[in-house]
């Protein structure tokens, strides 16, 4: 049995907002499965008492002081947007 089913791949694709044709779906199911099989092998290792690693670097999070260092970039970022009005990015309507 493969490590991931086509349904699961379709669901992940949907959550990631990736459109996927049926051909691609079976292709990705196969390649993802082979990767996940490797993970399955690794899961056999006894990790009792091992702290889960949150990051490969063995160092800690630096912290910055609470001072304003950034300014108004709206002119520059507005240029990236397809549609701007009243300095707002316009997107297809989302209504609750």
């Amino acid at each position: 049995m493969s490590a991931i089913t086509p349904d699961e791949v379709a669901k992940v694709a949907h959550l990631a907002r990736i459109a996927m044709s049926d051909d691609k779906l079976s292709e990705y199911t196969q390649s993802l499965s082979s990767t996940l099989e490797l993970v399955q092998q690794m899961q056999q290792v006894d990790t009792k008492g091992v702290t889960p690693m949150a990051h490969p670097l063995d160092t800690i999070q630096p912290q910055r002081s609470d001072h304003v260092t950034e300014g108004d970039f709206s002119k520059a970022i507005n240029q990236m947007a397809p549609k701007i009005e009243a300095n707002l990015f316009l997107v297809p309507q989302v209504i609750e």
């Binding site: 707002l88 316009l90 209504i95």
Partner: peptide, 14 residues
């Protein structure tokens, strides 16, 4: 997200 007065679109303020 602001939903008023954008001709059927939503305005986003980040």
């Amino acid at each position: 997200s602001l939903h008023e007065d954008f001709h059927g679109m939503s305005g986003i303020d980040f």
